[in-house]
């Protein structure tokens, strides 16, 4: 079995993984990193989203062996010590969740989205060359890769808007 090394939430991990293992399965089953969740396992729901080398990424559609040496940040690694990341805090403040299963993916996706918004147009952008203004429509479009079966979208939108401001 191939051996891979990752940095996960600031800590180095390494070990042998099945060549067929997705990054999600390697994180959860091999390295006991259970923050990213397995929802659909087909790239449709976004529950497995982490920041991979700084960008939001679906771990369920990635082979672990192809990401040897990568830096992974999960929702658990976003804050400073006991302090929650502002996006995670805003999700709590605005009831941006009900059951919470999609939340680690939502939070990582929102953090990645806010970081990339400047300089990246979206399908909802009228002027491709203008500076991004994170309207409700823009946030909804940019977060469309994360589903919430409880339907907490109004709270998720409010949380992201507060941080984007």
């Amino acid at each position: 079995m191939p051996r891979i090394s990752l940095t996960v939430d600031g800590s180095p991990v390494s070990g042998d993984v099945d060549v067929r293992a997705t990054l999600l399965d390697a994180l959860r089953e091999r390295f006991d990193v259970t923050t990213p969740k397995k929802g659909c396992d087909h790239g449709q729901c976004g529950a497995c989203t982490v920041l991979l080398d700084g960008r939001r990424h679906l771990t369920c559609l990635s082979l672990a062996v192809a990401h040897d040496g990568a830096e992974v940040v999960t929702a658990a690694g976003l804050g400073e010590g006991d302090e929650l990341h502002p996006v995670a805090q805003a999700f709590l403040d605005h009831d941006g969740l009900q059951c919470g299963y999609c939340t680690p993916g939502q939070v990582c996706s929102a953090v990645g989205m806010l970081a990339e918004a400047d300089g990246t147009p979206s399908h909802a952008t009228d002027d491709l060359e203008a500076e991004t203004e994170l309207t409700d429509e823009e946030i909804r479009e940019r977060m469309s890769g994360n589903l919430c079966r409880c339907g907490a979208y109004p709270g998720i939108l409010a949380a992201i808007k507060e941080v984007a401001r």
Binding site: G43, R56, H57, L58, S109, S122, H123, R142, M143, S144
Partner: peptide, 12 residues
């Protein structure tokens, strides 16, 4: 490009 997939998948 922007009409296709989701932001995560477009990164990949």
């Amino acid at each position: 490009l922007l009409a296709g997939a989701s932001a995560q998948i477009r990164h990949q």
